[in-house]
Lab assay of single mutants.
Amino acid sequence: LVRYRTISKIPQITLNFVDLKGDPFLASPTSDREIIAPKIKERTHNVTEKVTQVLSLGADVLPEYKLQAPRIHRWTILHYSPFKAVWDWLILLLVIYTAVFTPYSAAFLLKETEEGPPATECGYACQPLAVVDLIVDIMFIVDILINFRTTYVNANEEVVSHPGRIAVHYFKGWFLIDMVAAIPFDLLIFGSGSEELIGLLKTARLLRLVRVARKLDRYSEYGAAVLFLLMCTFALIAHWLACIWYAIGNMEQPHMDSRIGWLHNLGDQIGKPYNSSGLGGPSIKDKYVTALYFTFSSLTSVGFGNVSPNTNSEKIFSICVMLIGSLMYASIFGNVSAIIQRLYSGTARYHTQMLRVREFIRFHQIPNPLRQRLEEYFQHAWSYTNGIDMNAVLKGFPECLQADICLHLNRSLLQHCKPFRGATKGCLRALAMKFKTTHAPPGDTLVHAGDLLTALYFISRGSIEILRGDVVVAILGKNDIFGEPLNLYARPGKSNGDVRALTYCDLHKIHR
């Protein structure tokens, strides 16, 4: 019993810090008490220290592992850092350059016999395009090294910054494609005289377009951006097909006994025919423009016929181009109408809503002055909100995010209106959640004399007048207030005048 009563005193000691020596009952000389009392004092002292730490809000209350900052290894790049964003855009520009100039170089340097010394005699450094290609190869190699040090988000939505895990993730992902696209074939085969082989191998750079397509997928929600990307894709495919079309004609031209190829026909049409040795002929500019003209006309199913396939190889390629053109029509131009419709969806919704308003007016036989006010209010409210119901949009977000959005939407009023000066951010967040926005066209009466005042109004834009009878008592403008002081009276009061809008007004109100 003594032991039980001794232990039962522990909660009292913990909360009230009572010393055991003052209790005459606990001072009985028993061996059990002498053993338990020192333990009680020690526990009391420890609990006292913990309570003191909690009340003082000291940093040592938290466990040590929670006080440590997340460790980022040296030379690790955050995937959302500004440097990584700028670097990704730079790589994107280099990939676009590669997609345009690599097929052009591979096709127009394929057994090209233009006048001038061969590239091997001039030297590697004197070729501007080769120098640019070398810079692109170096940048792609540097990009691989950067990807080995860039964080990523795993399946659990955690940012991984450990170098080993980053390397394994990159090896399992895009490393092989990036490595093949970054191989400097110019340096590996330079001086061997195989410019045709170098041009063909350099087309491996186009593998990076797969990554670019995935990154550009984030802009699919913007109709104008999608339309622009589709047109660029169409032009890029036409450019690639033009390079292939020229390569076919250029390879067949020296081996044909009869002059029936499209390059021969082009030379005869523009007065620059090929001679018996295969030299001469149109310039590279004429060849490229004509090839691009043929691919565009074939892809769009126009086909004027002034550039036509004559050999079997050219006919087979033309059939493939027609098939590609039909697929592009289905996948690209078939979506253009939907994209344009999405661009004008706001206008369509406006006309639909206006039609419903006019049908309501016609069905209920609203008189002319009231009908005009109804239409003007709808037009003004639509121009202010673009038909978007803010309350319906915010309803799907958590309250903390709703408060931040409301604070942002009402920031101008909260910053410049005098009653809100000096208020804490928590108070402003709470008030912003209570605001209701209303609009009024010129001549609209917001409050009639004798109406119950259940709200306090803040003028965000425009001006109003307060009338008693036919006498203008006051004219209020931006950041002015009218209405009933909230919670100042037990019952809502009545208006002693009319409140009429002089201009288009936007008002925020808080109800009782």
Score class of each variant (00 low, 15 high):
residue 391 N to S: 08
residue 94 L to M: 14
residue 390 M to K: 06
residue 312 N to W: 01
residue 193 G to N: 05
residue 230 L to G: 04
residue 351 H to M: 03
residue 208 R to G: 04
residue 245 W to K: 01
residue 68 Q to D: 05
residue 172 K to R: 13
residue 403 A to L: 01
residue 241 L to H: 01
residue 241 L to D: 01
residue 135 I to G: 03
residue 409 L to E: 03
residue 244 I to V: 08
residue 324 I to G: 08
residue 64 E to R: 09
residue 287 K to A: 13
residue 373 R to S: 07
residue 205 R to C: 01
residue 272 K to W: 01
residue 68 Q to Y: 06
residue 86 V to I: 14
residue 211 R to E: 06
residue 143 D to T: 01
residue 333 F to N: 04
residue 184 P to V: 01
residue 132 V to F: 12
residue 378 F to N: 05
residue 244 I to H: 01
residue 171 F to G: 08
residue 312 N to M: 01
residue 405 I to K: 02
residue 293 Y to C: 08
residue 182 A to E: 05
residue 238 A to M: 04
residue 158 E to F: 04
residue 245 W to H: 01
residue 204 A to M: 07
residue 219 Y to P: 04
residue 372 Q to K: 07
residue 446 L to T: 01
residue 444 D to F: 07
residue 332 I to T: 03
residue 130 A to R: 12
residue 156 N to I: 05
residue 357 V to K: 03
residue 234 F to I: 01
residue 233 T to H: 01
residue 380 H to A: 14
residue 176 L to Y: 05
residue 102 T to S: 01
residue 408 H to D: 01
residue 84 K to N: 05
residue 121 E to L: 09
residue 131 V to R: 01
residue 248 I to S: 01
residue 347 T to H: 15
residue 440 A to T: 09
residue 108 F to R: 01
residue 326 S to I: 03
residue 302 V to D: 01
residue 150 T to F: 01
residue 416 H to S: 10
residue 161 S to H: 12
residue 69 A to C: 04
residue 440 A to M: 15
residue 176 L to I: 14
residue 234 F to E: 14
residue 366 I to Q: 01
residue 322 M to Q: 04
residue 123 G to K: 07
residue 264 H to N: 14
residue 207 L to I: 14
residue 223 G to P: 07
residue 270 I to M: 01
residue 65 Y to T: 07
residue 295 T to F: 01
residue 134 L to D: 03
residue 397 F to G: 03
residue 288 Y to H: 01
residue 155 A to F: 09
residue 366 I to N: 01
residue 261 G to F: 01
residue 292 L to Q: 01
residue 79 H to D: 01
residue 395 K to V: 10
residue 290 T to F: 01
residue 102 T to F: 01
residue 175 F to W: 04
residue 395 K to M: 08
residue 248 I to H: 01
residue 421 R to Y: 06
residue 64 E to M: 04
residue 156 N to K: 14
residue 209 L to T: 11
residue 194 S to W: 15
residue 219 Y to T: 05
residue 242 A to T: 01
residue 78 L to D: 05
residue 167 A to R: 03
residue 448 H to G: 09
residue 192 S to P: 12
residue 67 L to R: 05
residue 174 W to D: 01
residue 404 D to N: 03
residue 206 L to C: 05
residue 440 A to P: 07
residue 312 N to R: 01
residue 112 E to Q: 05
residue 381 A to Y: 15
residue 204 A to V: 07
residue 400 C to E: 09
residue 448 H to K: 03
residue 265 N to H: 13
residue 87 W to R: 01
residue 183 I to A: 10
residue 310 N to H: 01
residue 310 N to F: 01
residue 323 L to K: 01
residue 363 F to I: 13
residue 326 S to E: 04
residue 203 T to W: 04
residue 170 Y to I: 01
residue 431 L to V: 06
residue 427 C to E: 04
residue 433 M to N: 01
residue 357 V to P: 02
residue 288 Y to T: 01
residue 259 R to V: 04
residue 110 L to E: 15
residue 224 A to I: 11
residue 166 I to C: 08
residue 338 A to I: 15
residue 430 A to M: 12
residue 295 T to S: 14
residue 305 G to A: 14
residue 215 K to W: 04
residue 422 G to I: 06
residue 192 S to Q: 11
residue 136 V to P: 01
residue 156 N to G: 13
residue 350 Y to F: 06
residue 323 L to E: 01
residue 395 K to H: 15
residue 110 L to Q: 15
residue 138 I to M: 03
residue 97 Y to R: 01
residue 289 V to L: 01
residue 131 V to D: 01
residue 203 T to Q: 01
residue 76 T to E: 01
residue 363 F to M: 15
residue 74 R to S: 14
residue 277 S to R: 09
residue 344 Y to L: 13
residue 217 D to A: 08
residue 82 P to W: 08
residue 133 D to K: 01
residue 166 I to H: 01
residue 87 W to C: 01
residue 416 H to R: 07
residue 243 C to Y: 01
residue 252 E to T: 03
residue 99 A to I: 01
residue 135 I to Q: 01
residue 372 Q to C: 06
residue 173 G to F: 04
residue 141 I to Q: 01
residue 278 G to P: 01
residue 93 L to Q: 01
residue 306 N to P: 01
residue 217 D to F: 05
residue 369 P to D: 10
residue 417 C to W: 09
residue 162 H to F: 08
residue 364 H to E: 01
residue 127 Q to Y: 12
residue 273 P to A: 01
residue 159 V to C: 06
residue 325 G to W: 01
residue 232 C to K: 01
residue 376 E to S: 12
residue 197 L to E: 01
residue 379 Q to T: 07
residue 68 Q to I: 06
residue 334 G to V: 04
residue 368 N to Y: 04
residue 358 R to E: 03
residue 216 L to H: 04
residue 433 M to Q: 07
residue 280 G to T: 03
residue 194 S to A: 10
residue 412 S to F: 08
residue 314 E to W: 01
residue 218 R to I: 05
residue 98 T to F: 01
residue 448 H to W: 03
residue 179 M to G: 11
residue 120 T to P: 15
residue 286 D to L: 01
residue 81 S to M: 01
residue 430 A to V: 07
residue 333 F to E: 03
residue 368 N to H: 14
residue 228 F to I: 10
residue 189 I to D: 13
residue 248 I to G: 01
residue 104 Y to I: 01
residue 276 S to T: 11
residue 145 L to H: 01
residue 81 S to I: 01
residue 139 M to K: 01
residue 168 V to W: 13
residue 125 A to E: 01
residue 250 N to R: 14
residue 120 T to K: 12
residue 325 G to Q: 03
residue 110 L to K: 14
residue 133 D to S: 12
residue 277 S to E: 12
residue 403 A to V: 04
residue 179 M to Q: 01
residue 357 V to C: 04
residue 234 F to C: 04
residue 340 I to P: 01
residue 328 M to Y: 01
residue 207 L to F: 09
residue 290 T to W: 01
residue 241 L to Q: 01
residue 80 Y to R: 05
residue 310 N to A: 01
residue 393 V to M: 04
residue 422 G to A: 13
residue 183 I to F: 09
residue 297 S to Y: 01
residue 235 A to M: 09
residue 388 I to Y: 15
residue 193 G to D: 04
residue 89 W to T: 03
residue 160 V to W: 01
residue 324 I to Y: 03
residue 131 V to Q: 05
residue 430 A to S: 11
residue 127 Q to W: 01
residue 233 T to P: 01
residue 267 G to H: 03
residue 199 G to S: 13
residue 402 Q to C: 01
residue 372 Q to I: 06
residue 435 F to A: 03
residue 210 V to P: 10
residue 271 G to P: 03
residue 381 A to K: 10
residue 214 R to C: 04
residue 341 Q to F: 04
residue 97 Y to V: 01
residue 288 Y to F: 01
residue 173 G to M: 03
residue 116 G to T: 14
residue 242 A to L: 01
residue 210 V to A: 09
residue 223 G to L: 04
residue 99 A to D: 01
residue 275 N to Q: 03
residue 89 W to Y: 03
residue 195 E to D: 11
residue 301 S to I: 01
residue 447 V to H: 01
residue 359 E to Y: 03
residue 434 K to C: 05
residue 174 W to V: 04
residue 186 D to V: 09
residue 219 Y to E: 04
residue 123 G to I: 05
residue 252 E to S: 01
residue 353 Q to C: 03
residue 371 R to Q: 11
residue 254 P to K: 15
residue 254 P to D: 15
residue 249 G to H: 01
residue 275 N to L: 05
residue 431 L to H: 01
residue 167 A to Y: 01
residue 431 L to G: 02
residue 130 A to K: 15
residue 166 I to R: 01
residue 236 L to T: 01
residue 312 N to S: 01
residue 275 N to A: 01
residue 144 I to E: 01
residue 425 K to F: 04
residue 187 L to H: 15
residue 78 L to K: 14
residue 379 Q to H: 15
residue 338 A to Y: 09
residue 347 T to R: 10
residue 81 S to W: 07
residue 349 R to Y: 12
residue 385 T to S: 03
residue 344 Y to K: 03
residue 307 V to S: 01
residue 200 L to S: 04
residue 172 K to V: 04
residue 353 Q to F: 03
residue 409 L to R: 03
residue 403 A to M: 05
residue 107 A to K: 01
residue 385 T to M: 13
residue 223 G to S: 05
residue 247 A to T: 05
residue 410 N to E: 02
residue 267 G to Y: 01
residue 433 M to A: 04
residue 408 H to R: 03
residue 279 L to H: 14
residue 216 L to S: 04
residue 404 D to R: 02
residue 314 E to C: 01
residue 342 R to H: 14
residue 79 H to Q: 02
residue 203 T to S: 05
residue 179 M to C: 14
residue 230 L to K: 01
residue 357 V to T: 04
residue 278 G to V: 01
residue 124 Y to G: 01
residue 115 E to H: 05
residue 382 W to D: 01
residue 268 D to G: 02
residue 313 S to E: 11
residue 351 H to W: 15
residue 416 H to P: 01
residue 297 S to M: 03
residue 74 R to I: 03
residue 435 F to H: 02
residue 75 W to R: 04
residue 246 Y to P: 01
residue 289 V to S: 01
residue 171 F to E: 01
residue 74 R to G: 12
residue 131 V to I: 14
residue 377 Y to T: 12
residue 125 A to N: 04
